[in-house]
Design a protein around this nucleic acid. Structure first.
Length: 570
RNA sequence: GGGCACGUAGCUCAGUCCGGACCAGAGCGUCGGACUUCUAAUCCGACGGUCGUGGGUUCAAAUCCCACCGUGCCCGCCA
């Protein structure tokens, strides 16, 4: 309804401006501050400073007078307040919102008939997922959910690096070292088991005497060459390592949950010849140069050249990623990639190159996030420093569980929560708090990991919104057992309490701003405090029950978009 | 050294794109209040800010421009 209201406001304003002979290119529509009753407002008068001769408030009055609300469905009145033109919504707006929000699908937008591939995480399969990387699956999964909600056909992809030097090192190390010489794994899971070889291999390459190191480098080089040549045997050796580690990493990611429709391997674009094909086309570009035995590409506004073919004839990560993106262009309408900030330069070069190859890079979007660091510094899989995502989730659930158990004693509601409920709530709240903490912050900002901040169970956190959902469910459960029906149609005039009206107005903006979950929860809690539902007179109770259903659906969907579970009790 | 981000209350952050009701908001923490009531993981109030610093543009700047300071990332025939 909010979207329809906004469209109506735009029409009214544009019409009034045209009538008075003012430009209509910038309508200046905005949300007014909380203490103003209007749903939408316009500061267009400021932008008319030159064209209008009169003082701003007078111009605002002139515009307001020129608007007729008779033809409007949702706009009930237009007022001015100083230079601002304010638009107030009518009963119909509330009624329609309430009706729309009765649907469990509330907030979804119509299909856009556009496919979009969201690539996220894509961490090298070298070891356990650590917290430094954890922003990627959480942000990526939330982006995919939002796009899905917004009507796009979304596919989630994990791009698997199974062709790089690190993987060749890993494969060599796995085949070379003996498990008996390795430390015990930190956890009983495949990636924790495997990462020990990787760490040992890197350690060896750094510290071994030059002759031994060189022999190892020859073996690593042979693996890279084998992959480049498409040798099946080499591919199988590498796959054993990659698939094992990746399988373990995915078990961890599923706990968030972050799941994927497809795992796209780099080697795929070597085996099907598309990497070679890209290389051939790159060589013919104007910016292509052959220097010191390697093929490179020069850019107009990027200082650094892109080497796309090594002197030994093998391809590089970005070369394969070019083939990968051409494949995306061929199969999807749009593509979004979630990447760490360390990939910024690479992403710029990728984009510039794709555009030189004749692709429309407007269809691509990348979201860069900054690393999560520890107070004492960064995290590294190779060095084994940092906190693993498994560890964070375990701790989050354990702390949430403590919290649930603490609260059991002072619980008023007698709904007999059993051990299974405690387990469920601890899981929902713990994981939800972690996700919310990550999603609530702009990806570009650095985060220093602190247990206390990541695991906040109070206001402005996932549990805050989850709690409103549980409260709404509680009311509805009581209503059901008392035999109260939720009415099909509601006369909004019955909703006299300002808190009820305010809540419905907040619910109305949800489709436009799904991330305003906390704001909505606040409105619900005010309603909860001031408006008794079950003890109200019949007609009022019915209307308020409809509001509760609307609120429950809004809470469930706001959480759903963030990928957080909505508990029916907690 | 060059490029890109980030810098707002003690702490964690909104607001910055598209300057206007913002003489800046929220949560946490601190202090004080509210459970005989549909879940107190809630609610109400108080305290708390040179919007990194200095210039500039404008009727108007946290928001735009310039310089500087601090932090992070990048500048590999690694990914």
């Amino acid at each position: 309804m909010f979207l329809a209201l906004r469209a109506e406001v735009e029409d009214c304003l544009r019409g009034a401006l045209a009538e008075s002979g003012y430009p209509t290119d910038d309508l200046g529509i905005e949300r007014p501050p909380e203490d103003v009753e209007a749903v939408l407002a316009s500061s267009v008068v400021f932008r008319l400073a030159g064209a209008a001769e009169a003082p701003p408030p007078a111009v605002a009055g002139e515009i307001a007078d020129a608007i007729s609300t008779e033809a409007c469905e949702y706009v009930a009145a237009v007022e001015t307040q100083g230079p601002y033109v304010n638009f107030l919504a009518g009963e119909r707006y509330l009624g329609e919102t309430l009706r729309a929000a009765q649907s469990e699908e509330y907030g979804t937008l119509d299909s856009k008939d556009t496919s979009v591939v969201v690539e996220h995480t894509s961490a090298n399969p070298t070891g356990p997922v650590h917290v430094g990387r954890a922003r990627n699956p959480i942000v990526g999964d939330a982006v995919a959910r939002v796009l899905d909600w917004a009507g796009y056909d979304v596919e989630r992809h994990y791009y698997v690096n199974d062709a790089g030097r690190q993987i060749a090192v890993f494969t060599w190390a796995y085949e070379t070292f003996d498990e008996a010489d390795l430390p015990d794994p930190e956890r009983d899971a495949p990636e924790y088991d495997m990462v020990r070889y990787y760490r040992r291999g890197n350690e060896f390459l750094e510290n071994a005497d030059p002759q031994e190191a060189e022999a190892a480098e020859d073996e690593i080089e042979a693996i890279l060459q084998g992959l480049e040549a498409g040798e099946e045997a080499v591919y199988e050796r590498v796959s054993e390592v990659v698939d094992t580690v990746l399988g373990g990493m995915c078990d961890t990611l599923e706990r968030l949950p972050a799941e994927f429709d497809e795992f796209v391997k780099e080697t795929r674009f070597m085996r099907d010849g598309s990497t070679d094909d890209v290389v051939e086309r790159l060589k013919t570009l104007d910016g292509a140069v052959y220097e010191e035995g390697a093929w490179q590409l020069e850019f107009e506004d990027i200082e650094k050249n892109l080497v796309f073919l090594r002197a030994d004839g093998t391809s590089l990560y970005t070369t394969r990623d070019l083939a990968h993106h051409e494949w995306k262009f061929a199969n999807f309408d749009r593509a979004v990639t979630v990447l760490g900030e360390d990939h910024k330069l690479q992403a710029e070069q990728l984009n510039a190159t794709l555009s030189m190859l004749g692709h429309d890079t407007e269809k691509l979007e990348s979201i860069h996030y900054s690393w999560v660091t520890l107070p004492e510094g960064g995290m590294s899989t190779r060095e084994g420093t940092g906190i693993d995502l498994d560890e964070l989730l375990d701790e989050a659930i354990a702390r949430a569980r403590e919290e649930v158990e603490d609260r059991m004693g002072e619980r008023i509601r007698d709904d007999d929560l059993g051990e299974a409920d405690i387990e469920r709530i601890a899981h929902q709240v713990g994981v939800g708090a972690v996700r919310y903490d990550i999603v609530a912050k702009q990806p570009s900002k650095g985060i220093t990991f602190e247990w206390e901040d990541a695991l906040d169970f109070e206001a402005q956190s996932a549990p805050y919104v989850q709690y409103t959902h549980a409260r709404a469910c509680g009311i509805l459960a009581e209503a059901r057992s008392a035999g109260h029906e939720v009415p099909d149609a509601v006369d909004p005039a019955v909703l006299e309490a300002p808190e009820a009206r305010d809540l419905v107005q907040t619910i109305a903006t949800f489709p436009a701003a799904i991330e305003e979950a906390a704001e909505f929860a606040e409105a619900f809690n005010a309603f909860y405090r001031e408006c008794r539902v079950l003890e109200a007179p019949d007609e009022t109770r019915a209307a308020r029950l409809a509001v509760v259903v609307a609120a429950r659906n809004t809470a469930a969907n706001a959480l759903g978009v963030l990928g957080v579970e909505a508990p029916e009790s907690m």
